[in-house]
């Protein structure tokens, strides 16, 4: 085994790429949960985004059109969940699971003609000579546009949730939908929009996976990324910046684990590749065992259906 082959600068640069899909999905889910809705369909929305983004990108030979398509597709499948849970008051856990099962099947169906195709390359942004700077060149100036957009979405989400009227309304709806309703806020409308935003983010995250991170289409390629994103929201105590920290931490684990495999670490590949899931579980345990903090952080109406009487 040769650990010296693992270069920390490359490691950090590649962990940012590895983290971007789950960062996008998790920040979307954070907004959904802040509005009081638990959407367990993240995995399904991600994989639908992954396949539609891939299909459109290959057809048009334009990765950005593919990403746009993924955003639309993610929001559309999220709309099914929104209709079920918000208009028809269906159980949120079951509806989220249904979305995941449906998404996995749907993506396999659409994607069967796209297996083994190479998608158009997503170029890195051109920062001119800045990219050649030692260390920071690779880490800060060496990425494609989606890495920066994902960071921008985190910042914008934080700002919008905490500093604007719209964000306050969304949080009020999530904390106590009955009071929010009494104040005249449109609970159902706010939640449907939040769910669609979550779907759009998850779809984009999925497309990043199939167009940049891997890049190719294989059935079930999200491999639990959506579930890790869900865990990340709990880990982050529903705070945008902590989602970023958590996503990069997981990105680091995934990349390090791959590097150890490549470096010929003596543990069999199967055991190394289960580490992201095991670490997610460990982190969930640590976060949820400090009960006081958690109960203060989780939105008050999370997972409860709202039906305005009369």
């Amino acid at each position: 085994m040769d650990l010296s082959s693992i270069n920390p600068v490359v490691l950090i640069a590649s962990l940012m790429v590895a983290a971007t899909p789950i960062l996008l999905a998790a920040i979307g889910e954070l907004v959904v949960e802040k509005s009081g809705v638990l959407n367990l369909g993240v995995e399904g929305m991600m994989i639908v985004g992954a396949v539609s983004g891939f299909a459109i990108a290959v057809t048009t030979q334009n990765p950005y059109l593919g990403m746009l398509a993924a955003i639309v597709a993610g929001a559309l499948v999220a709309l099914i969940f929104a209709a079920l849970t918000q208009l028809l008051m269906a159980n949120q856990v079951a509806s989220g699971l249904a979305l995941t099962l449906f998404g996995l099947g749907f993506s396999a169906l659409v994607g069967q003609n796209y297996v083994g195709i190479v998608p158009p390359r997503t170029p890195k942004l051109d920062f001119g000579p800045l990219t050649d700077l030692p260390v920071v060149g690779r880490i800060i100036f060496g990425h494609d546009i989606l890495v920066y957009i994902s960071l921008l979405i985190v910042a914008a989400t934080w700002f919008w949730l905490n500093k604007t009227q719209g964000g306050r309304v969304l949080r009020a709806v999530g904390e106590n939908h009955d009071s929010a309703h009494a104040l005249g806020y449109k609970v159902t409308r706010v939640r449907i929009l939040a769910i669609m935003f979550g779907g759009a983010c998850a779809g984009l995250g999925g497309a990043y996976l199939s167009l940049v991170r891997v890049p190719s289409w294989t059935e079930g390629m999200t491999a639990g990324a959506g579930w890790i994103a869900l865990a990340l929201v709990v880990f982050a105590s529903w705070r945008p910046w902590r989602v970023l920290a958590g996503a990069y931490l997981f990105g680091g684990i995934m990349v390090l684990q791959l590097n150890l495999q490549a470096a010929g670490f003596r543990i069999p590949v199967e055991y190394l590749s289960m580490s992201p899931y095991l670490i997610t579980i460990v982190v969930l345990v640590i976060m949820s065992s400090s009960r006081g903090r958690r109960s203060m952080a989780a939105p008050g109406s999370l997972g409860r259906s709202f039906h305005a009487a009369g």
């Binding site: 079951a94 099962l101 449906f102 996995l104 099947g105 396999a108 169906l109």
Partner: peptide, 26 residues
């Protein structure tokens, strides 16, 4: 017929079931 079509079929079944449940409760 692609094998995934059946998976979609099963997923749709669950959607319809959850959607129609509203009639039991409302």
């Amino acid at each position: 017929l692609p094998s995934a079509a059946i998976q979609v079929f099963q997923g749709m079944l669950l959607f319809f079931l959850l959607a129609l449940d509203v009639l039991s409760n409302y």
